[in-house]
Structure formats: structure tokens, C-alpha cells
Nucleic acid binder design. Structure first.
Lengths: 206, 206
DNA sequence: GTCGGAACGGCACGTGCCGTGTCGTAATCC
DNA sequence: GGATTACGACACGGCACGTGCCGTTCCGAC
């Protein structure tokens, strides 16, 4: 988005628009954001915005994600749990708290209404992030630190899901302690007496 | 919402408004829903809507939740895993697929923009549902089917979180098989060789 | 009953923002 | 250096908002 505007002035204009978008979203909230206000704040004609982004949601997505080009990389200390924990701390601290937290939450909300935003969000952020997590888990598995039939994607969902749930559904902040608990539960399980699962015919893990 | 309109005609009017809201949301999507269109479809003045609901989001929330007054109850076969699984199947089938799925997803999206909707959603649906899950788990724990230090709220988040993640973030449908995997992973854990967790200092489960 | 206030449907209004069109100007490309 | 393209500014029609005002209908109190 905006990638085809390569001139010096054009880039400066795009950045000015993104900055105005974030300022206004921060001041009044995404719901009350208007293209007209962004154009006025950025000192730009409305056409210039519409020429670069197809909708308010697309502009907002681009503005928010551009803040975070340096993605969340996983450290590689050899300890898979410690590495996951450190990355999750960083992600939760950045995306779960002000100033970026409310904006990211609004972005996720908008993705529920607009399929284009949902697709772009997935392509630009969710999928790459998922891939990084899976790659890190895969490396641990290949080194014998995890069971050979370890389900990488399922593990990724169990790590991320509860955290998004906490923020989006339960409307409560996520602490480092909460991250620790999720990690512990994922790897150790919560079965009775921490060994054999209670009755039922559920499949073995992995 | 609307609880103070008790007359026969008033109740019929409210139901007519809710029905029109759901019809139009189904036809055009929540984003393109307008109060004017609802009023016209319901054969009602705009004032009548504004008198009962403070916003489009509040009206939509009320309309969607009124469809599901009969909440998701847990069976009590004595097998905690089987009971959880059966309830989760029902919830996923109803809220994760058309016709109700897209509406529920829009409702969750709106809750990210509007604190009033978020609070009402929590009070009317999320919190009671959470309480039902916790109560069912607590009963199992008290019967010795789960570890005494079993963390009920954490377990609830680990059951629900990945499912919401799958729908809202990954934008993929939730199958019964997926529910089975989450349940298995929660109780058995995904640690290496399904016993001791890999290095790190994470706390024990619960 | 009937009577008075509240809620009603219908209509109109001013406002805000949308997305587009049209200027004359400035930057950019060949 | 000439043509093309993007630009800021402004205007436009359109839509939906939320509110105010009609005259009518409903409904509980008396």
C-alpha cells in the first residue's frame, strides 16, 4: 500500500498522512476518525489519500503496521520455552498496552467488519508472525527438544489464543505472569495429578 | 435493554425492530446497517429505536444475543472432558458458522470499537458463559477428577482462546477435530515426550 | 368510562462525512 | 523543455446521523 509512490516528496506525503492518521486515532479513537480530518491534519487533499489507500480501514492498517516494521524475532538461546517467553513478553508489552495497544485492538475490530482489512492484516502481520513462531518451534523439535509428533500450528494457537482472548473478549490486560501460566500449561498440561488425563476418548497430544 | 417496555404492543415493536436488524445485517452486513433502514423495515419511527437503544452497536448486540437466550449449558455425564467437548461442539457449531457466525463475529468486532458494547457483551454473554465453564470445572475438581491446584480461569482461557483466535485472527473455520486437539493438549500437555518440560524456569501448571 | 400523559409513525431539518469532479499549479519524467 | 502526472483547494450530490415537531394512538389512573 503506497509502495508505488517512490519520489522523495511522495514518500514524505505518505508518511505525513500515516502520522496524522495515528495522531487522530489516538486523540479521538478509530471510530471517530475521518478521511477529511486526516487530510486536513496532514495538509493534503483528500484525493491524495484516496489515491493511495482504498478505505479508512486500509489506511489505518498501513499506519499501524508501519510502526512495527521490525517484527518480533525469536531469540535462540537453545531453551525453547525461554525463547518463546521472551518473545511473548515483548509482543504483549508492545501490542497490549498504550499507546499502541488500543490502536491494535481497533485494527483487529475493523478486520472483523472488512474482509479486505482482514486479508491484508493476515498477509502483512499475522501470517509472518505465525510462521516465525512455527519456525522456532520446528527448530526445537528437530533438535529433539520437543516430541517428534508435536503439532506446531496447534501449539502456536494455544500460545496466542488465550492472550488475544484476554484482551479482545475478556477485556482484561495481559501480564507477564499470565504468559508464564499459558506457557507452563501448554508444555506440562493440566491433567489430573499432572499425568494421565481423565476419562474420555480424546486423542494423544500432537 | 428494552426491558422497561412491557406492554404487549411495545414488546411486539421491540421484536419487530430486532428482527429487522438481523435481517438487514444478514443481507448487507453490519457495517452497512443503518438505523434508518431498520426503522423503515420494521415499520417504526426512528425515535422508537433511539428511545430503546443508545446506539447501533447496542441494538445489534441485543438483537444477536436475544437469539440465544437459551445459553450453552454443560451436560453432566461425570466425564469432564466429554462434557466440555460436547458443549464446545455446540457453541462452535452455532456461533462459528452461518447464519449466526458472521453476526457474532461482527458483534465481537464492534466491541473492539465501542466500550459500551464491550461491557454489555461481557455482562450478558461472556461472563455468564465463563462462569458456567468454571463451575463445571470446579465440580470436576471437587470430585477429585482434576488436580486440587487446577487453575480454573486459566483452563477456561486455554479452551476458548484458541477457538476465538482461529476465527477472529487466523480467519479460518473451527472444526470438531480442532476442538478435540485443544482439549487433548490442555489436559495432556505438549511437552517433549509428553512428560518433563524442556529447560526454563516456568512454574508448574495450575 | 374517560381523560391525560406518554409513546407512536411520519416528516423535515441541520450536520458531518463520504467519494468524486473540476479547477489551476507544481513536480516529475523522458 | 515539453508532456504528463500528481497535487491542494474547493465544490458537489448523496447518505445517514440525531433531534424537533406534527397529529394520532395507546394505556394506566381515576
Amino acid at each position: 500500500m503506497g509502495a508505488e509512490w517512490t519520489g522523495t516528496k511522495a514518500i514524505a506525503r505518505s508518511e505525513s498522512i500515516r502520522r496524522a492518521t495515528l495522531e487522530l486515532a489516538h486523540e479521538r479513537g478509530f471510530a471517530k476518525l475521518s478521511i477529511e480530518a486526516v487530510a486536513a491534519r496532514a495538509g493534503v487533499g483528500k484525493h491524495t489519500i484516496y489515491r493511495r489507500w482504498p478505505s479508512k480501514g486500509a489506511l489505518f492498517l498501513d499506519a499501524v503496521l508501519a510502526l512495527n516494521e521490525g517484527a518480533f524475532e525469536y531469540p535462540e538461546t537453545g531453551d525453547i520455552v525461554a525463547d518463546l517467553r521472551q518473545q511473548m513478553y515483548a509482543a504483549v508489552d508492545l501490542l497490549g498496552r498504550p499507546p499502541l495497544g488500543p490502536l491494535y485492538r481497533s485494527l483487529l475490530g475493523e478486520a472483523q467488519h472488512d474482509p479486505a482489512v482482514s486479508a491484508a492484516l493476515n498477509e502483512r502481520f499475522i501470517a509472518p508472525q505465525t510462521q516465525r513462531t512455527i519456525a522456532r518451534l520446528e527448530k526445537a523439535r528437530d533438535r529433539g527438544q520437543l516430541s517428534p509428533d508435536f503439532d506446531l500450528e496447534l501449539a502456536m494457537s494455544i500460545l496466542s489464543g488465550p492472550i488475544y482472548f484476554q484482551v479482545l473478549i475478556a477485556d482484561e490486560p495481559v501480564t507477564h505472569d499470565y504468559v508464564d501460566k499459558v506457557l507452563a500449561a501448554l508444555f506440562a498440561g493440566m491433567g489430573p495429578r499432572a499425568s494421565s488425563p481423565p476419562g474420555g476418548d480424546q486423542r494423544p497430544p500432537g
